[in-house]
Simulated assay, not measured.
Amino acid sequence: MNTFKKYLGIVWIALAMVVAYFAIGIFGGKLTSGKQDDLVFGIIIFFILLPLVVTGLTIFGWYAITDEYED
């Protein structure tokens, strides 16, 4: 079970990278579209939601890799 947790930790960290890449690719156009609605939505995604999601997935994966959940 511990090796399974470690593999899932790697999956969570990889998922964090994929989420960051696609969010920047998809929502990057929202910041430069020129419409105010898109700009507000892009700012919320980039500066509030994206860091929370990526940081959460990365920390969760790191804890799974380093066996922090054993205690």
Rank of each mutant, 00 (worst) to 15 (best):
K30A: 15
F46Q: 04
V54I: 06
F60P: 01
I43E: 06
D38K: 10
D67C: 01
G25K: 10
A16S: 07
W12V: 00
G42L: 04
Y21H: 06
M1K: 07
I43S: 13
P51H: 00
V18P: 06
Y21C: 03
V11S: 09
A20P: 00
G25L: 06
L52W: 03
G56L: 02
L39E: 08
I13F: 00
I45V: 05
I45Y: 05
L8K: 01
T32L: 08
Y63L: 10
F60W: 14
A64T: 07
G25N: 12
L39S: 06
G9K: 01
G29E: 01
T3Y: 14
Q36H: 13
D38Q: 14
K6P: 00
T32A: 14
I45Q: 04
A23F: 10
I59S: 09
V11P: 06
G56Y: 04
V19S: 05
A14M: 05
K6E: 07
D67Y: 05
V40A: 07
I10A: 09
T66Y: 11
G42K: 09
D37L: 12
V54Q: 03
S33Y: 02
T58A: 10
A64Q: 13
V40G: 01
E68R: 15
L8M: 05
I59T: 11
T32H: 11
L8S: 04
I45M: 07
L8A: 05
Q36N: 10
N2T: 05
D71Q: 14
L8E: 02
N2K: 13
W12E: 00
A16L: 03
L50M: 08
G28W: 07
T32W: 14
T58V: 00
G42V: 11
G25I: 03
K35S: 15
E68T: 08
K30W: 15
D71A: 10
F4R: 10
G29T: 08
A23N: 07
T3S: 15
F46P: 00
L49M: 03
L8P: 00
I26Q: 14
I65V: 15
A20S: 02
V19Y: 13
N2W: 02
A16F: 03
T58F: 15
I48K: 04
A64I: 07
F41W: 12
Y69W: 13
Q36S: 13
P51S: 00
L15T: 08
Y69R: 03
A64M: 15
V18L: 13
L31F: 09
F4I: 15
G42R: 04
E70C: 05
M1D: 15
I65H: 03
A23G: 12
T3F: 11
L50I: 13
F47T: 01
M17E: 03
D37R: 05
I45D: 03
F4E: 09
G28A: 01
V19L: 08
T55D: 04
M1T: 12
T3L: 14
D38V: 08
T32I: 14
V40H: 06
F46E: 04
V40L: 07
K6D: 06
F47P: 04
